[in-house]
């Protein structure tokens, strides 16, 4: 994966209010979860406004019924991070479908008490990902789509 050095990250997050805290957390998390990486992109809010924000995008390893799956997620950090929780989504590939439930809506947005009760410094990205791994290990947010069926053929009498 791409090597992201702290200097580059600091430059990327220049509009973040608590840049040093944010950079430190991102650096820590991507060193532990090597399939996540920071990406700068436009985040579109519900009101239609968009803003360039950093997200941690990639996969987290989730163990479900004895197998490990690389669940694709995207964690957006507001420029007020860590004083506001990340906005988190599961990002199904075309071969997957979202399983909506208590923790996941039809858009893939992730809802967790950990996010709802987010409070710096008790809450952080590392803790959040650990909670996700536990919760998703009980109830996966995505499943594989059934393999394509052969074309339908009518019964012939």
């Amino acid at each position: 994966m791409a090597v992201v050095n702290e200097g580059a990250l600091k430059k990327m997050l220049k509009q973040y209010k608590y840049r040093d805290l944010t950079v430190r957390e991102i650096t820590n998390v991507i060193s532990q979860y090597k399939d996540l990486k920071p990406v700068m992109d436009a985040y579109v809010f519900n009101d239609g406004n968009s803003r360039d924000l950093v997200s941690l995008a990639g996969t987290i390893p989730v163990s479900y019924r004895g197998n490990v799956y690389n669940i694709p997620v995207c964690l957006w950090l507001l420029d007020t991070y860590p004083y506001n929780p990340p906005i988190c989504f599961v990002k199904p590939t075309s071969a997957m479908m979202i399983k909506t439930g208590k923790h996941i809506d039809a858009n893939g947005k992730i809802y967790l008490p950990y996010l709802h009760e987010w409070k710096h410094p008790h809450s952080d990205l590392y803790g959040l990902i650990q909670v996700m791994i536990v919760v998703f290990g009980e109830e996966p947010p995505v499943f594989s789509r059934p393999t394509t069926q052969p074309p339908y053929q009518a019964f012939q009498a």
Binding site: D35, N70, M96
Partner: peptide, 14 residues
């Protein structure tokens, strides 16, 4: 995913 792990998901639930 630029060299990251290949995303995967459990088989379809019934």
């Amino acid at each position: 995913l630029n060299g990251g792990a290949v995303p995967s998901a459990p088989p379809t639930y019934t």
